[in-house]
């Protein structure tokens, strides 16, 4: 790879008595710019014609890719492995540098904002991996989710406990000791604590059993009924498209098909290539 960063050379980095790679972040630090008012219209959240990849000189992973979600909707991104689904989510959240394209939220161009500034703007994101603070209790996880809030958070916490009753039971337990499905509930709960205006989920059902998966889907629909638009990446394309108002099929970082969930499920091309006939 060209432009290798010498500071990230991993030689001699295995001695854990002097170095601690646990929990180190991958999100590049950058100085954010301001949000700019964008001409009105368009969906609530849209990543428009995004082109970009990891690092300053890494190859492009997304090519002219557009994903959007409107108020009251569930939008789902599906596609084969390595299609850039998660990358597209990260791009919308500002976790990688866009070379072209814009991200707009509620009539503002937020392309220049840092991820933490986007949280303050009302975006909630649940990453696919490492999406909870394992060494902290469930309650502390939720508290950290609400870190940017200055007001009383006990009401929101009650709502999250009502949505995921098992978390109320386990609230004093370290989140790392929970089962896979419960961890995902903590992760979604943490993101809900900011009272986000839009929620982004990266494969919320990865690695959980089918029964737990159904339950999680039910909860996601419940969240969406409260009026929060949801943008999510999903491996289980069929099930996800069934609950989706809008679906995007990505292939090699490009929009291959898009339409409502039902349209995509009915589309013979999509069925043949991605849904197993």
């Amino acid at each position: 790879m060209t432009g290798r960063n010498a500071y990230q050379d991993d030689r001699g980095n295995k001695d854990r008595s002097i170095t601690n790679p646990d929990g180190a972040g991958e999100t590049p630090l950058r100085d954010g710019g301001p949000a700019v008012a964008a001409p009105g219209g368009g969906p609530f959240l849209i990543g428009e014609a995004m082109t970009g990849g990891y690092g300053r000189s890494g190859p492009d992973i997304l090519h002219d890719c557009t994903i959007a979600v409107d108020r009251g909707e569930i939008a789902v991104i599906v596609g084969p492995n390595g299609a850039g689904k998660s990358t597209a989510m990260k791009a919308v959240f500002g976790m990688l540098d866009l070379r072209q394209g814009h991200v707009r939220l509620d009539g503002e161009d937020i392309s220049a904002l840092t991820p933490q500034a986007r949280v303050a703007k009302g975006m909630g994101f649940v990453p696919q991996n490492h999406n909870i603070f394992t060494s902290m209790t469930v309650e502390e996880n939720l508290e950290m989710g609400a870190f940017i809030r200055e007001d009383d958070i006990s009401g929101t916490m009650e709502q999250v406990y009502d949505l995921f009753p098992i978390l109320r039971e386990k609230r004093k337990q370290a989140a790392g000791e929970l089962s896979g499905g419960q961890r995902q509930q903590v992760a979604v709960g943490r993101a809900l604590m900011t009272e986000p205006k839009v929620l982004m989920l990266d494969e919320p059902t990865a690695g959980v059993s089918p029964i737990v998966m159904d339950e999680l889907f039910d909860r996601i629909i419940e969240v969406s009924r409260t009026g929060i638009p949801i943008l999510m990446v999903e491996q289980n394309a069929r099930q996800a498209l069934e609950i989706a108002d809008k679906g995007y099929v990505l292939v090699q970082g490009r929009n291959a098909y898009s339409g409502t969930g039902k349209e995509l499920l009915a589309d013979p091309e999509v069925r043949k290539s991605f849904l197993g006939g």
Binding site: G23, A24, G25, E26, T27, F93, M95, P115, Q116, V119, A120, F125, P127, H130, N131, I132, F133, T134, S135, M136, E140, M144, G145, F147, I148, R190, A191, T194
Partner: peptide, 16 residues
Amino acid sequence: RAYSDNEDLALLSGIN
């Protein structure tokens, strides 16, 4: 403690 546990997630929670 959150930052020590998981830097990226701390960022996503708005921790500076």
